[in-house]
């Protein structure tokens, strides 16, 4: 568990639920690292004569300073990145447009998906992978809207990782030329680090969240190619300053395409749909 915020990685069970059949599949078993019985370390034969005590450590040290040094230069996330690259190749080979939807909880990602699915009906097949810690409510909502969907429950996990997408894609089997929407766990921090193999990240921010969110969470907005400002229908009521928000987004990511819309009322929804259709081929 992270000592800063209490968030965790998907180290415990991660499961996948097909809302059409209710079938659950365990895609990651828990217990990679056991909460150890002897975490106090007092079962070990301690040598308490430290010559060079390391900071914050109370462990036996039997090493000498001249052990062989191996240069590694390996990215810590290389495994995730390799699987992501494989996913990306698979998507490109089939002409599947895969989008990684990121936002904080409650920004309206699922409502956005529901309308997107309805508007694209008859134009292009759409598949959805829903990431949440618990419940398959969202997968059921998008399935009701007409898309084939799978739910991934990350348990304690705060983000989706590439291997989960690989498993989900195998089961969903999106047809060539379709769109695959991956709704990440609602979180503006961790998902920015983990490549899933998507064509691009789409960040959703809503008018109720405050104009300075892009400045508060710059990593996520820097990683997104498209930023959608949602809930524009209530912008006036919540005194949302669109210009300020756009200039904050531009400050952290000048290249981002910014579209303001309302997923609930459908206001200004066309540019978003066009953007999706544009990416056809």
């Amino acid at each position: 568990m992270c000592g800063k915020c209490g968030c965790s990685d998907p180290t415990n069970e991660v499961k996948m639920v097909d809302p059409a059949t209710g079938v659950e599949t365990l895609i990651r078993h828990g217990g990679l690292v056991q909460a150890d019985d002897h975490s106090n370390g007092h079962h070990h034969d301690h040598d308490h004569h430290h010559h060079q005590p390391h900071e914050g450590e109370d462990k036996p040290h039997v090493h000498g300073p001249n052990g062989e040094v191996i240069s590694l230069e390996q990215a810590v996330l290389s495994k995730n990145d390799q699987i992501a690259a494989r996913n990306r190749g698979w998507f490109e080979g089939r002409g599947v447009l895969a989008l990684n939807l990121v936002s904080s909880p409650g920004s309206g990602k699922t409502t956005l998906l529901e309308r997107t699915i309805r508007e694209l009906k008859g134009k292009r097949a759409i598949y959805v992978i829903e990431g949440d810690q618990m419940t398959s409510n969202d997968a059921e909502r998008v399935r009701d809207a007409g898309a084939k969907a799978l739910q991934i429950n990350t348990g304690a996990g705060c983000h989706l990782e590439a291997d989960m997408i690989a498993d989900a894609v195998e089961q969903l089997n999106p047809e060539p030329g379709s769109i695959l929407m991956i709704e990440n766990v609602g979180n503006l921090v961790c998902p920015s680090m983990f490549d899933l193999g998507e064509r691009m990240k789409v960040a959703v921010i809503s008018t109720t969240e405050g104009e300075d969110k892009p400045l508060k969470y710059p990593h996520m907005f820097r990683a997104a190619e498209v930023v959608l400002i949602n809930k524009m229908d209530i912008a006036e009521v919540v005194e949302f300053d669109e210009d300020a928000c756009r200039s904050n987004i531009a400050e952290v990511n000048p290249r981002a395409t910014v579209l303001s819309l309302s997923a609930k009322t459908g206001q200004n929804f066309e540019p978003w749909i066009n953007k999706l259709v544009e990416h056809r081929q």
Binding site: P60, V62, G67, E68, L72, E73, L77
Partner: peptide
Amino acid sequence: TGASLEIEEAEGDTFLIKEFEYREMA
């Protein structure tokens, strides 16, 4: 077990395992 963790500052979004050192066996 008992290994120390050293962290050097780098540029941008670097996140690498630079090197590791074997323990000298007594």
